[in-house]
Amino acid sequence: MRIRELAVPGAWEFTPTMHGDERGVFAEMFKASEFEKAVGRPLDLLQINTSTSAAGVLRGIHYTEDPPGQAKYVTCTSGAFVDVVVDLRPGSPTFGTWDSVVLDDVDRRWVFLSEGLGHAVLSLADASTVTYLCSLEYTPELDHEVDALDPDIGIAWPATGRDGQRLTLLRSPKDAAAPRLRDLAVAPRGRR
């Protein structure tokens, strides 16, 4: 497994080694010893979520108040997504910094994001399915969102999907009404 820390401290990309032959493909998707060596802690698992989206569906940027925060280990089980991690930790020297990874059913990458980081996914193909392993059960009063199209964050969302067709973004009303980064209560001094 190849492991790479993203530009956002506290987030990593895990790319499994694929072993294929005429029968198909095998890969180790998680190995506790390698995960803990890279991340410095075990993967706490309290809830697993899955979501299927049409091409162009943009979910997020979502985050959970920290503390307690919610860490996530995320992969795409079918189709393709752009997975984005944003630093939303108050006082962090990288507050507002983002990085992205393409998650798909070919390379089978995973992304781990620590508590305090925001998360968004953009579906690049119809019927794309993303799965999240979460360190905290869903707690609505702790969950919040930031506008994924906020120019202050400046995420470079792709304009075309996996098939080369132009994407039309579709967001939930809640995500479309999300506040900008500068309007968050978590924004550190000087970044509002």
Rank of each mutant, 00 (worst) to 15 (best):
K31F: 15
T64N: 01
K72R: 12
A27I: 02
V39R: 07
R59Y: 04
L43P: 06
T77D: 07
V39S: 08
V101L: 10
T64K: 03
P42H: 10
V101N: 02
G96W: 11
R89C: 09
T75M: 14
R59F: 03
P42M: 06
P68T: 10
V57I: 14
V82G: 08
P93S: 02
V106L: 12
G60L: 00
V101A: 06
F26P: 04
E36M: 08
E34M: 11
M29D: 03
M29Q: 15
F26D: 11
Y63P: 03
V86Q: 12
A55E: 02
V57T: 07
V101Y: 01
F26K: 11
S33Q: 12
D104F: 02
F35I: 04
G69K: 00
P68F: 05
D87M: 06
F95S: 11
M29S: 14
M29E: 08
E34Y: 12
T50Q: 15
L46G: 13
T50N: 15
T94R: 09
S33L: 11
V82F: 06
F95D: 07
L58T: 03
Y73K: 01
F95G: 03
D104T: 08
H62F: 01
A27G: 05
G79F: 03
A54P: 05
R108C: 11
G91S: 08
E28L: 07
V74Y: 02
I61Q: 03
T94C: 07
S53F: 00
V106T: 09
T75E: 12
G91M: 05
V101M: 07
F95K: 13
G69H: 01
A38C: 09
K31H: 15
L43S: 03
S100L: 09
P42Y: 00
A80L: 03
S100A: 15
T97Y: 07
P93I: 10
V85F: 10
E28T: 13
P67C: 10
R89M: 07
G79E: 04
S51M: 13
G40I: 04
E36T: 10
V86D: 03
L45P: 04
G69L: 09
I48H: 06
L45D: 00
S92N: 12
L43H: 09
V74T: 05
F112H: 00
V86A: 06
P90F: 11
V86F: 01
W98C: 09
P67I: 09
D107G: 08
A54Q: 14
F35P: 03
V106Y: 10
S92W: 08
G69N: 00
I48Q: 12
M29I: 13
P67W: 14
I61D: 00
F26A: 09
E28S: 13
K72N: 06
D83S: 11
M29G: 13
Q47I: 06
D105P: 02
V111C: 08
T77A: 14
R41Q: 13
P90H: 10
R59C: 01
V106G: 04
H62L: 02
Q47V: 01
Q47P: 05
